[in-house]
Design a protein around this nucleic acid. Structure first.
Lengths: 229, 229, 229, 229
DNA sequence: ATTTAACCGAGACGGTACGTCAAGTCTTCAC
DNA sequence: GTGAAGACTTGACGTACCGTCTCGGTTAAAT
């Protein structure tokens, strides 16, 4: 199976509405306004940065009354989340079904992590994603929403790929796949968020290699090569 | 060498002043005011949350004029950073010199990661730390400061411990220690920041075990243990 | 001829519709909605005061769409005027034809002014009437409407009574009746609007007595002017 | 004694501050800002009318923050009142001491009422005064303030003039001077507020003549009561 | 007897202003 | 002569209503 892998998060998000407000009549909702708002939000995050992003600014840029924003989104973070989803999925709900699986786990994972790194380095994604994380760090409700609608679907795909590898004997049976996913993607995300180092494709490769092999030396391996056999 | 390991970050931060402002005469600075401000900032982050933390609030709580804050700190993030350092180091600059090294790498790393988990779960640290990360995500200058004064010293200690293990043949020679540190701590920090799962001591143990062993099955090893030999 | 005199304004207003809007089909107008709106408007003026009276509030209280109000009334003032007329006339157009005329001008005028004072002191009238005057002061169109449909009919009745007194030799021939009416009712209305003093029946009597007699002392000059005797 | 009589209200108002807010430190108050606000308020009432007068508009026009208005005035009416006082008294507290007293009561009163009429017809006073009355009608607190600081001082002067006439035997001993003042000025104010007729100097004269003489015919009764008969 | 056009309740929409809060600057007073 | 106190301008907040505009659903007049 073939999948475009230049974007990762982008292709696996579930679109929906984060609003919890006491229900306005959604059937009367103006789709025009909705799109204008989400577009304006993304534009502005890119232009002025999240710290200076204001609801008023978004409303003005979108040619919309403030109330129309407050009516449909409970917080700036929720709006940003929706805007981000629109960005990543183009507003469509259909999802790619799987990550690449060529049989070569290391190669596939490198492809995937490099795609992630690419995305995180793309300014079009970097800024809104940082903004989103700013809110997630402090707002558990938004974090839960993020987990359910972005993180978990993706994580499931990643676990599926690893499970397939497990079946193929390329991953140990007793490895917790959640931990495995964390070990592969945690370092990347962390370096990106904290800027604790350069976020390069090489780094992605290193993480994959190290995670697969483990930190310990492979005494076993020397044994494997044992000529006496 | 013995080190108390119930706190980690707390014990290894370098205290300093993040201010970049055109220098007011620091010799005239009121130490009383400085301490009152930092204490008030921490108190308030805990009480009202970072989103509602205001300079005015801090000034009032500290019994200080707003100007006194603006004079000495360039941003809320910088003030928060200082406050955080005061919290973690108690304002003293002496640093513990090393992480525990009993010779048992797995055990030592579990100790360290559990300490980290503890700290992240302690509300006294959790809230200010989240607040700090909110700022770091968006503010590269603060991120650099954070890297230099908190992350790097700690990372050096961690790398030292791993280097020692490398010398002892417990870590492969060709492992990049930065990557190794990221693989151990990245998952923890990430799970904490995104709340993508429960942050327990068990999880810390799992991370250590998985990181050391690697994801791949150890055919080799089974061979090593091969009874037929 | 006998007339109930405990209410004054109430009994002499001409009911009508102040609307000037491009004609909606009045034949289809819902009488239910109209009444509900006028009633709700009066209720709300009493409950929340004119300053906080809103079209939306009236619509909600009347169980009516906002458009139904905007369709039939051009302004809040106009609506209030209609509501006020409904209050004072009970929606009927028949009018009492005359003020009391017992032959005793002073007594009759006192009766009338006391009735006016009563009405102005009745909270059911006081609040809506004040509200109406708020609009009249600033809106000449509404003032004209008020003049034509409330003030002038009443003024005509008052002038009729005075004219009858003039014929009976109780009012000087050369007195301008409009001025006379102003002198009798102006003080009352003014004291009510500006609350420049207590608005009592006694005050009404004083005004009548003083207006009839004039400010000047009488005996001296009247005798002085009777040289032939 | 001579007094300029082309303005009346203007010359007898007591300047003060209507504010009841929990005390900001008035000693630190910016006189510049205060003046700019009052001036802008008057300008705008004239330009856009009271209905469209907004705090925001005043703040902008005055080059002042909204808070500076909210800090010092409790309501738009109170601000308007202060602005109006500034207009009428030029901000000075010294007051003219008396109304004209030539000995000829009718002439003096006509002078005074004509001055009042003049003022009410002057657009510079008309609009702010109407605006002020709009608020007074609904707001008893403001009405009280108005009474105390504008109406009463003026009324006292008027009563003084009448008292002097009383002493001179030109006004009956038993006339209540408050009623007398109301009868002279009430008609004027009322006609102005309700626009129930043209407000001309002639009208002022008529009011004076009618009020002094009374409505009743004189000769008949005065002779009738003549003791010499 | 059915069309058809208007009114009706409802309420989303683009706006304006509200009154509040805090940011960051500037001035004044007291120690 | 520093620092608390706090007034100042600025600008965004989130709310309340404005007056306009659909949207279905009655409902009464005209087919």
């Amino acid at each position: 199976m073939k999948v475009k892998t230049d974007r990762l998060v982008s292709r696996f998000a579930r679109v929906g509405d984060v609003s919890q407000k006491a229900a306005p009549d959604a059937s009367r909702r103006s789709e025009t306004a909705r799109r204008a708002i989400l577009t304006a939000a993304l534009d502005l995050v890119g232009k002025v940065g999240y710290a200076k992003l204001t609801i008023e600014g978004i409303a003005t840029a979108a040619g919309v009354g403030k109330q129309t924003i407050y009516r449909w989104w409970p917080s700036k973070g929720a709006l940003l989340f929706d805007a981000f989803l629109t960005l990543t999925t183009g507003g469509q709900e259909e999802q790619a079904a799987a990550l690449p699986d060529t049989g070569d786990l290391a190669a596939d994972m490198k492809l995937i992590l490099r795609a992630t790194v690419n995305e995180l380095n793309d300014p079009r994604y970097d800024l809104p994603m940082r903004a989103l994380h700013t809110e997630i760090v402090l707002d558990p409700a938004l974090a839960a929403d993020y987990a359910k609608r972005l993180d978990e679907p993706l994580r499931e795909l990643k676990k599926n790929r690893l499970r397939s590898a497990q079946r193929a004997g390329q991953v140990a049976e007793d490895v917790d796949l959640d931990v495995a996913v964390d070990m592969l993607f945690g370092p990347i995300l962390n370096r990106w968020l904290q800027r604790s180092g350069p976020l390069t494709p090489d780094y992605a490769d290193q993480v994959v290699d190290t995670a697969l092999r483990g930190l310990r030396p492979r005494e076993a391996r020397s044994c494997f090569e044992c000529p006496g056999r």
